[in-house]
């Protein structure tokens, strides 16, 4: 009997009478990282690492508000000195963060290429978002802004390359000197606002990506992520504002 073969792209052997798993079928699965779900999990896990770092970083930065000690030293500088005294911890964290950043960016890049260039090749003449937030739709912009900001931030306050009055070890001085330039301060505020936007969507999103969702907890989680994003953004932005307004000097 000769019949036309229908066009069906899933390969399969027609000979077997029973449906046993074949090696062919095994190949129809996809490796963890090669899958879109796996990439999102990687983004979530690395995002979480970066988020934890940001929380610690903010806590440390807020030490700037402590008044000088009796001997004139600043708590912020002490903390920095302590940290540098623990090179294993410091470099361990730095390597972990670097790996996380790289993975986060590579996965984001790959997913963006898939989403914007492969999956939706033709856009709509008219498109009205009804549920997504401004933050979620601009992750692809807030991400790179944060990336370039972090590079600048490292060159500015960690390595001092871009900071003309950089004094190694005197974090307090470096920060204050930095933000006395209004341009720099405004750039920092803008970048941290982007960070807040990124977190606004990111904190909830990372839970969803690793599969943490429950009708009882998800609404709370969404509220908590908004609160955290605002708190973190406000915390970071407060420092340049405090310097500009002369609260910290």
């Amino acid at each position: 009997m000769q019949r036309r073969k229908a066009d069906f792209p899933i390969e399969g052997a027609k000979s077997a009478l029973t449906s046993v798993a074949t090696t062919e079928e095994a190949k129809q699965t996809v490796g963890f990282y090669r899958s879109v779900v796996g990439k999102k999990v990687v983004m979530a896990v690395t995002g979480f690492i970066l988020f934890v770092f940001i929380v610690f970083h903010l806590a440390a930065n807020l030490l700037i508000y402590f008044p000088p000690e009796a001997n004139g030293t600043r708590l912020l500088n002490d903390y920095a000195a302590h940290l540098r005294a623990l090179p294993a911890l410091l470099w361990g964290a730095r390597v972990l963060l670097l790996v996380a950043v790289i993975l986060h960016i590579v996965a984001a890049w790959q997913l963006t290429v898939l989403n914007k260039l492969e999956a939706r090749t033709t856009g709509y003449v008219k498109y009205t978002p009804i549920a997504s937030s401004y933050a979620s739709r601009t992750m692809v912009w807030s991400g790179p802004i944060i990336f370039f900001y972090v590079i600048y931030h490292l060159l500015d306050l960690t390595f001092g390359t871009l900071n003309p009055s950089f004094q190694s070890g005197n974090v307090f001085h470096n920060v204050v000197a930095d933000f006395e330039h209004p341009g720099v301060a405004i750039f920092y505020i803008f970048a941290n606002a982007c960070l807040a936007f990124h977190l606004y969507h990111g904190i909830w999103s990372m839970c969803q990506s690793v599969g943490l969702a429950h009708p009882r907890y998800t609404p709370m989680l969404k509220k908590a992520s908004v609160a955290l994003a605002i708190a973190i953004g406000a915390g970071f932005c407060s420092i340049p504002l405090a310097v500009m307004t002369g609260l910290v000097r």
């Binding site: 996809v30 879109v36 990439k39 492969e118 549920a131 999103s205």
Partner: peptide, 23 residues
């Protein structure tokens, strides 16, 4: 495993948790 693999092979994009679908 196999449904996610197929979804990807069909060139659907990745979920980035916008929530438009649910709406």
């Amino acid at each position: 495993l196999s449904m996610v693999a197929r979804m990807q092979a069909e060139l659907f994009g990745a979920c980035t948790n916008h929530g438009e679908c649910e709406a």
